[in-house]
Simulated scan of single mutants.
Amino acid sequence: MFPIRDHNPSGRTPYVTYLLMAVNIGVFLSYVSLMSDDRAIGMFFFNWALLPERVTTGGGYTGIFTSMFLHGGWMHLAGNMLFLYIFGDNIEDEMGHLGYLAFYLACGVLSAAAHVISAPYSGVPTVGASGAIAGVMGGYLLLYPKAKVDILIIFIVFFRILPIPAWIMLGLWLGMQFIGSVGTDPETGGVAYWAHTGGFIVGMILTVPIWLRLGGPRFWSQTHGRPPHPDATYPTVRSRIPKVRRK
């Protein structure tokens, strides 16, 4: 189950979201050739990824920033860019281009700090834009909890697109990150769950001033948690597979 689009159109072109996607993709393409050489990619990540043990001993601070533009593989990159594409445009619409850029970078840095606090002696390189994007998702949940999000459900041979409220999809995602945070040892590597959880919470907190400017609880009452504009509509595509009637 993963999201493919939302029904929440933005009022302006999300230039910063597109720029962030382009930078992430461009940076990945610049070093993807190293992925076939374990020593080369290991040295690259040692220099540019986030290593908590280096930060706690007084070094490696650049990794807090640079790590949010690195990814560990094609699927890692694709998943993050999909989430950024779906949820980033609406946050940029509300915050403005420069405000959104500052918000995104702040979420990325603070989510990295959350990971360092959770695993201060880990020597495992950490990469990915997930923490910053989790902040975008946290802000989206605060502003548009009932916006419709289309999710693709895949169960063996069953495929279906189902629209659900954003609070269900994002709430499930956050719950999975929190369970992972308390159920795994962050020192051993794997998914940086605390970076995701921390980024999400930071994103919600940093979005509170926007929410209050819009009216706070009154904004929710007026919109009923939905976007304050008509939903986006998508054309229905009929299946060309013929139906077989039962006798």
Score class of each variant (00 low, 15 high):
Met1Val: 06
Phe2His: 13
Phe2Gly: 14
Pro3Phe: 07
Asp6Leu: 12
Asn8Thr: 13
Gly11Trp: 12
Pro14His: 07
Tyr15Glu: 01
Val16Cys: 04
Leu19Asn: 04
Met21Asp: 06
Asn24His: 07
Ile25Arg: 03
Ser30Pro: 13
Tyr31Trp: 08
Val32Glu: 07
Val32Met: 07
Ser36Trp: 00
Gly42Arg: 13
Met43Ile: 04
Phe44Asp: 10
Asn47Thr: 05
Pro52Met: 03
Thr62Asp: 05
Gly63Lys: 06
Ile64Trp: 09
Phe65Arg: 09
Thr66Arg: 12
Ser67Leu: 01
Trp74Leu: 10
Gly79Ile: 11
Phe83Cys: 11
Phe87Arg: 13
Asp89Trp: 09
Asp89Arg: 09
Met95Trp: 01
Gly96Ser: 05
Leu98Met: 05
Leu101Asp: 04
Ala106Glu: 10
Val109Phe: 13
Val109Ser: 09
Leu110Ser: 09
Leu110Ile: 13
Ser111Val: 07
Ala114Thr: 14
Ala114Pro: 04
Val116Arg: 01
Ile117Lys: 02
Ser118Pro: 02
Tyr121Pro: 00
Val124Pro: 02
Pro125Phe: 05
Thr126Gly: 00
Gly128Asp: 01
Gly128Arg: 01
Ala129Val: 04
Ser130Met: 08
Ser130Glu: 08
Gly131Thr: 07
Gly131Cys: 03
Gly135Trp: 15
Gly135His: 14
Val136Tyr: 00
Met137Arg: 07
Gly138Asn: 11
Gly138His: 13
Leu141Asp: 05
Leu142Ser: 09
Leu142Phe: 06
Leu143His: 09
Leu143Val: 10
Leu143Lys: 13
Leu143Cys: 08
Tyr144Asp: 02
Tyr144Pro: 01
Tyr144Val: 01
Pro145Gly: 01
Pro145Ser: 02
Lys148Leu: 15
Lys148Cys: 08
Lys148Gln: 14
Val149Glu: 02
Val149Trp: 00
Leu152Phe: 14
Leu152Asp: 07
Ile153Glu: 15
Ile161Ser: 03
Ile161Gln: 07
Leu162Asp: 08
Pro165Ser: 04
Met169Ala: 00
Met176Thr: 05
Gln177Asn: 12
Asp185Ala: 00
Val191Ala: 08
Tyr193Val: 10
Trp194Pro: 14
Ala195Cys: 06
Gly199Glu: 15
Phe200Glu: 15
Ile201Cys: 14
Ile201Tyr: 10
Ile205Glu: 12
Val208Gly: 09
Leu212Met: 08
Leu214Ala: 03
Ser221Met: 01
Gln222Ile: 03
Gln222Met: 03
Thr223Lys: 09
Pro227Glu: 14
Pro227Cys: 10
His229Arg: 11
Pro230Asn: 06
Ala232His: 00
Ser239Gln: 12
Pro242Val: 01
Arg246Gly: 15
Arg246Cys: 09
